[in-house]
Design a protein around this nucleic acid. Structure first.
Length: 702
DNA sequence: GCAAGCCCAGATAGT
DNA sequence: CTGGGCTTGC
């Protein structure tokens, strides 16, 4: 059998483990995507399984389409009938067909993070909770998400009125016929749990279920998988507990660690041979990740070359850091004939990308930044989408509110408020049905403007039925006058806005071409579920800049891990033992992206929008990875003397830069300047608050 | 009642 | 530097 020839023994064992539950614990670069793909190909070609009976769940749309195209290469056209998608788009597709069974329109809107925050702000206003010090909209946003993803009500204890916020938030979503991202999964689960005949339909369809990146699934996704696989029990999951990095959105490592308990007859296959990195890179990766307590034991090994030791560079500041990286790139391109697409710059937070962008731009090096300022988050795009959403779903009054006076048409806040009230009662956007009331409650000038607006909506609806998606969006920009405003001004920003809208029209065009006969709402769903990494283009010879989270599943010949500093990485908001372990896994993910060369950098001084930080080198470099595994311009014995967990009572004279101290009010901090004012004061960078303060020496405790 | 303009707070990661 | 919220001027 040809398919199996290019696999090692463990991979072959996994691919041919056809029946029953199987867990493949696959280290980084051990060929897990290969195993998944070959197994699907094997099922179709050797077992004659109809592609319609196979389901593949991947982490991103990009991974899904890559898997599809690999399958196409392996076994040809029939592969295109396999259903491979992310959890969220899987759930979305099902809900688009079935959610009416739960009393919600199949044309429901999907609310993104911005919409969600908007709703939460409304909720907080209505409940008159001004306690924004501790409970900001963002806080509620995260808590709501966590509850929805973990299906526990534990967090209700946080504040007595949290339940009120939770309930009103969900009520408002319902009023808008809207689901947030988490709801997609939650309603899918609800559908299957409450309506067994629907569940059975899908159980019957999918004989074999495969799930990639199983270490990052959350309890709801777990329950979905379990329900779906109940009939055939052919559940094949692949993951690496050392790469579990999405705890913040409810994913739980315990799920992969418990697989054997969940499915007692499960087979467990380990893939430990790494085909990606050099020995020296793997040594660093292994030495780091073994510092974690909670993990399956495994050790990556490889037959490959030794390679060079990873190199560490301590920069003066973030600009120097960027210049070092860019110079290295130029050098390697010039002297080793590398191409720009060989390089990736990985960072912990998006904000770090800016300096690199500036320097790359200045040097004329082509680059692409993944994420950060997302295309879909642009105001002009969101406005266009709000029009489209409102046209598809007249109950989506959040979108209505967004566009009723965009572009300006003289319908102000007061008018909008009254209109919203009316629309809520009427449940329709057919103006004829509430025209008389509008004239009653509004002064005639405002009523006139409103009337014009609804005439516009009416006209748009007619065009929507007649035109294709891209043509329709084009028409929308014309009829609403949205673009004309920008065309007049001729500023750079406005030209960019026009270009963005054109890009949206182009995306719609491509979508129609790829999915003939689809509706506008399919396009909207597709857009909502698009992720940053899906837009990455590997072909075009550009340096890639992306977050460590986004780098999961990718590989590059040369990797730069930048900003290796305490408070940035590990991030200051992730300081509990569990969170530190997750940060460490994130670091492990970064290291194992590198095939041939790996660089770490840190900046001893870093300016942010608010202040200057003097962060010590990340503990991952200074403590976890043995010094002899890395070349460095800085790492040496002096440095390792600083024990980040040891607090000592000393005088200003013997405080050193980088020493960890504790202040009763400000918490844990790091000495930036010892004895800078006089011998009684020191400058401390307090990690938790991220502030720099002068404090008296005697205020610092053990 | 509307819109322009000022002021202040603020950015971990992402489907 | 940016975006949302609030104030002021029309």
């Amino acid at each position: 059998m040809k398919l199996l020839n290019c696999l090692n023994e463990q991979q072959r064992e996994a691919v041919t483990a056809v029946e029953g539950p199987v867990l493949v614990l696959a280290g980084a670069g051990s060929g897990k995507t290969r195993v998944l793909t070959y197994r699907l190909a094997y099922l179709m070609s050797e077992y004659n399984v109809n592609p319609r009976n196979l389901l593949g769940i991947t982490f991103t749309k990009k991974a899904a389409s890559e898997m599809k195209s690999r399958l196409n290469n392996l076994i040809g056209e029939q592969a295109s009938n396999i259903w491979i998608s992310t959890f969220h788009s899987f759930a979305y597709k099902i809900l688009r067909r079935e959610i009416h069974n739960l009393g919600i329109s199949n044309n429901f809107s999907i609310f993104d993070d911005e919409d969600k925050n908007y709703i939460i702000k409304e909720v907080l206003k209505e409940l008159k909770l001004n306690d924004e010090e501790k409970f900001s909209p963002e806080f509620y946003n995260q808590k709501i998400s966590l509850i929805k993803n973990t299906d526990t009500a534990v967090s209700f204890d946080i504040a007595p009125y949290f339940r009120l916020v939770w309930e009103l938030y969900n009520k408002k979503l319902k009023e808008n016929e809207a689901l947030d991202f988490d709801d997609l999964l939650l309603y899918n689960l609800k559908l299957w749990e409450e309506l067994p005949e629907i569940l059975q339909k899908y159980q019957k369809q999918f004989f074999y279920i495969s799930v990639d990146e199983y270490q990052d699934i959350n309890p709801i996704q777990y329950r979905l998988v379990k329900l779906l696989s109940l009939a055939h029990k052919n559940i094949f999951v692949v993951g690496d507990d050392d790469q579990s990095i999405y705890g913040f959105r409810g994913s739980n490592m315990k799920i992969i660690l418990n697989f054997k308990n969940d499915f007692p007859d499960a087979r467990i296959i380990k893939l430990e041979q790494n085909y990606r990195s050099t020995k020296n890179i793997l040594k660093v990766a292994n030495s780091l990740v073994e510092k974690n307590q909670r993990r399956h034991c495994k050790e990556l090994w490889c037959m490959g070359t030794e390679g060079e030791k990873p190199y560490h560079y301590e920069a003066v500041d973030e600009r120097d850091e960027a210049i070092f990286v860019v110079d290295k790139i130029k050098e390697l391109v010039r002297e080793k004939g590398r191409s720009y697409s060989d390089f990736a710059i990985l960072y912990r937070i998006h904000a770090q990308s800016r300096v690199f962008e500036e320097v790359l731009l200045r040097e004329g090096i082509p680059y692409q930044i993944i994420g950060g300022n997302r295309f879909l988050d642009r105001k002009e795009i969101k406005d266009m989408l709000a029009y489209l959403r409102y046209l598809e779903n007249p109950k989506d009054l959040t979108s209505f509110e967004r566009i009723v006076n965009v572009p300006r048409r003289g319908i102000g806040v007061q008018t909008t408020k009254k209109l919203l009230q009316l629309l809520k009662q009427k449940n329709t956007d057919e103006f004829s049905e509430f025209m008389s009331e509008v004239e009653e409650i509004l002064p005639s000038r405002a009523a006139n403007k409103v009337k014009q607006f609804f005439l516009l909506i009416h006209k748009l609806k007619e065009f929507k039925e007649q035109l294709g998606i891209s043509e329709f969006i084009q028409k929308l920009t014309e009829l609403t006058g949205y673009i004309t405003e920008f065309k007049k001004s001729n500023t750079i920003e406005d030209t960019a806005k026009i270009e963005n809208i054109e890009e949206l029209i182009n995306m719609a065009y491509e979508f129609e071409k790829k999915n003939p006969g689809t509706k506008l709402s399919d396009f909207l769903g597709e857009l909502s579920l698009l992720s940053d990494i899906d837009t990455m283009d590997e072909q075009v010879g550009r340096v890639v800049l992306l977050t460590l989270h986004n780098a999961k599943g990718l590989e590059f010949p040369v990797v730069f891990m930048v900003g290796m500093e305490e408070s940035l990485f590990p991030h200051r908001k992730a300081q509990s033992p569990e969170e530190i372990e997750e940060e460490r896994r994130l670091c492990y993910v970064g290291i194992t992206r590198a095939k041939e060369k790996l660089f770490f950098t840190n900046a001893s001084r870093r300016s942010t929008y608010k202040q200057e930080l003097y962060n010590p080198i990340s503990r991952f470099l200074s403590k976890d990875i043995p010094l002899e595994l890395i070349e460095s311009n800085k790492l040496n014995k002096n440095f390792t003397e600083v024990d980040l967990n040891k607090f000592s009572r000393v005088t200003a004279k013997i405080y050193c830069q980088g020493d960890t101290v504790f202040h009763p009010l400000w918490g844990k901090g790091i000495i930036m300047l010892p004895g800078s004012i006089d011998k009684e004061e020191v400058l401390v960078n307090f990690l938790y608050e991220g502030v720099i303060k002068r404090v008296k020496v005697w205020e610092l405790n053990d």
